[in-house]
Simulated scan of single mutants.
Amino acid sequence: MNIHRSLTRTLKALGLAVALLVLNGCATAYLVDNQVQSFPRWADQPGVKPGTPVTVPQAPQIFRFERLPSQRDGRVATGQDELENLAALALAKVGWTAAAPGTAAPWTVQVDANTLRLPRAPWDSPYGGGYWGGYWGPGFGYGMPGRDYVVTGRGQVIWMPMYPAMAMESPYYKRDVTLVIRHAASGKVVYETRAAHDGRWNSTNGLWSAMLDAALRDFPAPPEGLRQVNIDVPR
């Protein structure tokens, strides 16, 4: 009997230790895996003659944010404020600083974020993965209700109501963030970069910051082509 009780206590202690290890492991960080593609066009600066070696601007540099008309009003403007604050922190890590209000800057930066919310991961779909339902919307961390559709296996988009039966738990998100840098005086685009991530993580500043950091990886002279950039985000 004593041996049985001792074994029971040992197993309970072992189970508790394993549970604590799992919880601690889950509590440390989560992975934000990004697909990143960048397009440097520094040769498009005014005054650069064809065939001239490209002069990539070195830090420090000063920039100001610019917005599209759709980013200036209402709820979108509020989200854009927060997104630009996060972008400013990411740009500061590569030596680019936002100019003080009313101060001229040689560069402008436009930042945009989009979210596609799916009711479930594609592989969880009861339709066998050939159909998705959800809504897409521009802006920082949210979508636009009422844009409900499915995408067939052939890439066709079919608009349809989002019935309650389709609104399953564990939504799945497809997100992307894009930064476009322009020569302020001419308006020419000299750098474009995009990071895309999909997963079940809820929208947080940490997640968007990781995506912005990924988009600016290897700035201002990134490698060609699509690449994966993984960033661990503390919980």
Score class of each variant (00 low, 15 high):
V177A: 09
S186C: 14
L216Q: 00
L91E: 03
S6F: 12
N205A: 12
V151N: 00
P53I: 10
A210N: 03
L16M: 11
D213S: 09
G143A: 05
I181S: 02
L216F: 05
D176H: 01
W136R: 06
L68Q: 13
G143P: 01
L207K: 02
V111I: 13
T204L: 04
S38C: 13
V48C: 05
D73T: 12
L16R: 05
W107M: 05
R72K: 13
E224M: 08
A221S: 15
P46V: 07
T178F: 01
V56R: 04
L23S: 07
L116T: 04
M160D: 10
R64F: 00
P106R: 05
D213H: 03
T10M: 14
P119S: 14
D112V: 02
G130Y: 15
P161H: 10
N34G: 10
K188N: 12
N205M: 12
G133P: 06
P46A: 10
A43S: 13
A87E: 07
E224L: 15
G139L: 07
Y142C: 08
P145E: 08
R154W: 15
K188C: 11
D232V: 06
M166N: 08
L116A: 03
W123M: 08
D198C: 00
L83N: 00
R41G: 01
D218C: 09
R235L: 12
T152G: 11
E84S: 02
P119M: 12
Y127D: 12
A29D: 06
Y142T: 09
A214L: 03
A195P: 02
D44S: 08
V32L: 00
W96R: 01
A121C: 01
Q45I: 15
G155H: 05
G225K: 06
N85Y: 13
A92E: 09
K49I: 15
G206Q: 07
M211W: 03
A27V: 11
A104L: 09
A27H: 07
G102P: 02
S170R: 14
R67F: 07
L179N: 04
Y142N: 14
E224G: 14
V36T: 03
G15Y: 03
M211A: 01
D124V: 08
F39A: 10
K188S: 07
F65Y: 10
V36P: 01
A113T: 02
A167K: 14
V18Q: 03
W42T: 04
W42Q: 10
D218M: 05
F39V: 08
P223D: 12
F39L: 13
V54G: 09
N202Q: 14
M160F: 06
I231F: 00
S70F: 11
Y142V: 09
A165V: 12
A104V: 04
P122R: 06
P53N: 12
G187T: 04
W201H: 10
A196E: 04
P46Q: 05
R64A: 02
L179S: 08
R194I: 11
A87T: 10
K93N: 14
L91R: 05
L86D: 08
Y142M: 15
Q156A: 14
L91F: 10
W96S: 04
H197M: 02
P60N: 05
A29Q: 11
G129N: 07
G146L: 06
L68T: 06
H197L: 00
A100I: 09
P122N: 02
A77R: 12
M166P: 07
V36F: 06
